[in-house]
Design a protein around this nucleic acid. Structure first.
Lengths: 112, 112
DNA sequence: CGTATTACCTAAGACTCCAATGTATTTAAG
DNA sequence: CTTAAATACATTGGAGTCTTAGGTAATACG
């Protein structure tokens, strides 16, 4: 597990990028996908996920669609056009920030 | 300027690394160095710097030394042995986190 | 049939950082 | 020489973000 503080500020970026890549996803699916892609080193908890999803929805970056699966109702989240452009923007911001951090920390950018 | 949220969690790392590289530094010097290394895209404000320095000192990672410059008293901060090892650790944590983020965001690690 | 997993969510609090503010000295500009 | 900018220390109140802990319920598996 990483120092949890480092995750701060990146959650929205992660969510938006996943939705941009995968189309509609539901909350639990997002937590599993993050765990998967990060080899279990990022544990996206529901306590941070759902408030963030609701916030992004309130800001008009996401919309939701409810789909019945038997008795269970699954809630899918997907990007609005604004969400799509914001997603791209956030990725660029993140990349620029990384570049800056490498400069400030004077690290060689070997991350492959 | 970057999205300020992204800076969260990296401040201690930046400060420790700068002190590890430069030996003793005083507060104002740190703000200028960060501005410098980041081509002005990171503005480390005093409201975040000094509380962080004091916290690191309270945790035993830093010590201070007061040096008189005429009438002005300059306060130098420098790493303790614990601070030095923590600095190395934090850099490693940061690098590992970056790697993970590239995986999760599915970006190619071209940052040079 | 009970436990793990799937699936949604909220509330209280911790923590981090920022904006604003305050004090005082030194240097540069007019 | 006086005044504005830069140097230099710091605190406080608040905003925002995430975590811990909790709550509900359906489904799958043994």
């Amino acid at each position: 597990m990483h120092s949890p503080e480092l995750l701060k500020g990146t959650l929205q970026t992660i969510i938006l990028k996943l939705l941009a890549d995968n189309g509609k996803m539901y909350g639990y699916e997002i937590t599993q996908k993050v765990k998967d892609l990060s080899d279990k080193s990022l544990q996206l908890t529901e306590g941070s996920l759902y408030p963030t999803l609701h916030k992004l929805e309130a800001e008009g970056l996401l919309k939701t669609e409810k789909v019945s699966m038997g008795k269970r109702v699954r809630k899918y989240y997907f990007l609005t056009p604004l969400g799509e452009s914001t997603s791209i923007q956030k990725i660029q911001d993140f990349e620029a920030f990384m570049k800056t951090m490498f400069q400030v920390l004077q690290l060689s950018p070997k991350l492959a």
